[in-house]
Simulated scan of single mutants.
Amino acid sequence: MARLPDVDPAGEVAERVRARRGGNLTPLDRMLLHSEPLADGWNTLLGAVRSRFELAADLRELAICRVAVLNDADYEWRAHAPLLVAAGFPEDRLESLRGDDLDALDPAHRTVVAYTDAVTRDIRVPDALFAQARELLGERGTVELTATIAAYNMVSRFLVALEVHGNEH
């Protein structure tokens, strides 16, 4: 059970969130709606990250899933692992993301995981790894990957701190 109760999801902000979500509110949304300005800004930011970036879906979802693992955010993992598989990531390699032996991943995926680990664990990205990501993704892609990792670190920290597990509804 989450640390705070759900709020009554009414009003313009709740409707904008519902519209982005295809008509439904998630337990995360219901927690965010304790602060409408937060929920509204979050909805805009995460909407851009999820649907307006050029970053390939498999790389986006890979980064999100790795953040979930590193931050012990099970809700985030359960929400995004199926999206990662749907984006073409081999289902039999999902469990490899839960550990540090990533040899089964292709080079692009290893780069994204290493970059995600650096941003999440250390904040600073070593020059050689940054150059590798930039070569793989270009400048815009590197910015979008970095923003995705940063945004989902925010998501996971919010979920974990407020104990939002996703099974309340």
Rank of each mutant, 00 (worst) to 15 (best):
R20Q: 06
E91M: 12
A108L: 10
A118N: 07
A79P: 11
R50L: 15
S35L: 06
A161Y: 11
T148H: 08
R157M: 13
D122S: 07
N24P: 07
E36Y: 14
N153G: 05
A118S: 04
A48V: 03
V85C: 10
R78L: 12
L28F: 04
L25H: 05
L32F: 05
I64M: 07
R3L: 10
A128I: 02
L46A: 01
D74P: 07
V69W: 02
L62M: 05
E61V: 13
V7Q: 04
N71P: 01
A108E: 13
A161I: 14
P27R: 00
E15T: 03
A86T: 08
D101K: 11
N24I: 15
Y152P: 04
Y152T: 05
D29V: 09
R110Q: 14
M31C: 10
A150N: 10
R140K: 15
M31I: 13
V67A: 02
A19F: 06
V143Q: 12
R52P: 00
S51W: 02
A131S: 10
D6W: 11
P82F: 12
A114W: 08
R20E: 03
V69E: 00
V160S: 06
D106T: 12
L38H: 07
T26R: 07
I123C: 03
R93Y: 10
W77S: 04
A133S: 07
R66V: 03
A14D: 03
V112H: 02
T116Q: 02
Q132I: 07
G11Y: 11
L28G: 01
A114I: 12
A79C: 15
T26Q: 05
A57I: 11
T146M: 09
A63W: 00
M31E: 09
R20W: 00
G141N: 04
D127S: 10
A57F: 09
A56L: 07
G22K: 02
E168M: 11
L4M: 13
M154H: 09
H80R: 11
D106R: 13
R18A: 13
R98M: 15
R50G: 09
V113L: 12
A81V: 14
T142D: 06
E91R: 15
V49T: 01
V113M: 10
W77K: 04
V164E: 00
L105C: 06
L45Q: 00
L137S: 09
G22Y: 06
A39P: 07
G47P: 01
F89I: 01
V13N: 07
L46R: 02
A86F: 04
A48D: 03
I123G: 00
R60S: 04
S51G: 05
V17I: 08
A68D: 02
L45T: 00
T44M: 00
V17N: 01
